[in-house]
Design a protein around this nucleic acid. Structure first.
Lengths: 340, 340
DNA sequence: TTGTAAGCGTTATCAA
DNA sequence: TTGATAACGCTTACAA
């Protein structure tokens, strides 16, 4: 293995000088700088970050823990993290927790052992207690976490509550009043927030809440499919179905169609996320765009600032990104050509 | 920072003993073993893999370079790699090359610097020359690479050639003879193989090749969309469209529908890949299942064996996984209720 | 079975 | 501006 020692020998300078050149320090005479580069080329020297990491205690690696890779939402978000990380010279370990607390914990331990400089944790399953402890030993940014419960934690989210408000407003605009809701898991702030927003929206229009119009899925399209079938079997069939994410919405759309109803002529279906795939179903899915990629970018930027030693003022510790309606084809007026 | 030195002090043993305990060496007396574990707990000791890596020259990290995260094909494959890697105690750096040679090269360099033990490279853009050199300095497994050009390289693939043969046979079975083909990029063995298989299939049925029935996409649904529109504008509209991957097929389906034709009643559309999303379009996409996850698993297993120092015999260096037809709703008989 | 000490490839301090 | 040298936290002979 070629080390800076070899480079130093060949270049005829000290290893300190080589190290300085490699780290872009200004203090090296041009002449020596060139000698070093020449030797590097000549020897095919490969810089060893492991050694550097041991000495400097920084690996330029970060860990990114995502709940699942099955929902394209997370790869898109991960992409934002990765792109931004690369710009800053960081490499990312991508880990799937499968929404399991145990796996999440294991990965955190592994990442800590690997000496990552920071961790970005999406939709954490760990307890507040654990996260707080983790936060005290490593730079941490958490997504979809209720920052009001812990001001210390750095958080990034897109506004699930507002997303549902926007979605409901669109549905109201299209004259829907019988709106069913496929909620996600009641384990995250966004899960709760969306549910709450659904209730509030109904209230604001004086529409009474019907428990048979609410069901819970696990964010998979299959759960959306199963649950939507039940909605359609109801005595008073809803005229619109809103799902907490696009995957469930697409499942619901399939279910509605499989039961012989048309989307959106008979039943409108709407999702939340704005994944690319929503454009490919028929009809294409009307949804609320969550800035996934941007959440990833923001998460890394925040982490980067922590790593740079910046003290983030209280009011900058919690980033919330806006969502916006993305109207496509799956929502139509409630009273248009209805079979029901 | 708590080191094994501290653990040794607290446990009242030597650091060598601590190291042995931590590495599960049998040679330590039970009594000491327990003392060490107690001290580890008491001190909240975090094992430092960086130090270990420097000494042992193995990081238990691998790099996985994928062409894109936009096509769910690759996340699914990546998942196979990750799961299998985790079982073996490895962590994976996931990198997106965006199908750009430059980016791929950069990532390879970064991974090398990070001291990964091995690299899995999907759909490489690098030259054979470069890959050969890379292979000589690090454990390497390459996907979608023509192993006949270089027996040394370890390769894993799913059989694109056979996939198209199977797809064409299905279409023939459904009485199609006017079959258009959306080819992928002619840069990879699978790209070439699929094209070749299309030609051979036609030949075997004595159907003459029409150049206007062949177009090239870049694997994105948009390219499939654009290209399919041209097919539909042709004087003799094809009765079936086969795309080299599911994303393009789904785009093609959208295009066909947007031009007022029904799928599959007027035009059948078929893809290759078997991505989960194919179930969610309407009609659901008939396709050829490529064992993505299994390719990932196989790739890591092969890499793992190289890392374990096994000498892989020539005939085990090239793994090719079988594909199979996954019939869904987008292919029907050529002469059924046709408008054209 | 255990302890001691050299060394992995860098960085950083200090003196020159 | 440079060179020499002691760390960094672990593993691994080798000696005890």
């Amino acid at each position: 293995m070629v080390t800076i020692k070899d480079v130093a020998r060949v270049a005829g300078v000290s290893i300190g000088t080589v190290s300085n050149v490699l780290n872009g320090k200004e203090s090296v005479r041009l002449q020596n700088r060139e000698k070093v580069y020449k030797a590097v080329d000549q020897l095919g020297f490969q810089y060893n970050m492991t050694a550097s990491a041991l000495r400097t205690k920084t690996t330029k690696n970060i860990g990114l823990i995502i709940p699942t890779i099955v929902n394209p939402f997370y790869p898109e978000l991960a992409r934002g993290v990765e792109d931004e990380a690369r710009k800053a010279g960081f490499t990312v370990f991508l880990c799937n927790s499968d929404r399991e607390e145990e796996k999440e914990r294991n990965y955190i331990g592994a990442l800590l052992s690997k000496g990552v400089d920071g961790i970005i944790l999406l939709k954490p399953k760990s307890s507040q207690e654990e996260l707080r402890r983790l936060n005290s030993q490593i730079a941490l940014v958490v997504e979809d976490w209720d920052y009001r419960s812990d001001q210390e934690l750095m958080t990034v989210s897109s506004d699930g509550y507002m997303a549902v408000i926007q979605a409901m407003n669109l549905l109201f605009q299209y004259k829907h009043r019988k709106i069913a809701f496929i909620s996600g898991l009641m384990e995250s702030p966004s899960g709760f927030g969306k549910m709450r927003a659904y209730e509030i929206s109904l209230e604001s229009r004086n529409i009474s809440y019907r428990s048979e119009y609410v069901a819970y899925g696990d964010y998979s399209w299959k759960s959306g499919y199963a649950v939507a079938k039940e909605f359609v079997k109801l005595e008073t069939v809803p005229t619109a179905i809103l799902a907490a994410n696009d995957m469930m919405a697409m499942g619901a759309m399939k279910a509605v169609q499989s039961m012989g109803y048309r989307v959106p002529a008979d039943i409108s279906v709407m999702g939340i996320d704005g994944i690319e795939m929503g454009k490919l179903c028929t009809p294409s899915l009307t949804t609320v765009l969550q800035p996934k990629y941007e959440v990833g970018v923001a998460a890394f930027r925040l982490l980067g600032r922590i790593l740079a030693g910046e003290d983030i003022p209280e009011d900058k510790r919690h980033i919330m990104l806006e969502t916006r309606i993305m109207e496509r084809e799956s929502v139509a007026y409630a009273d248009e050509g209805r079979l029901i």
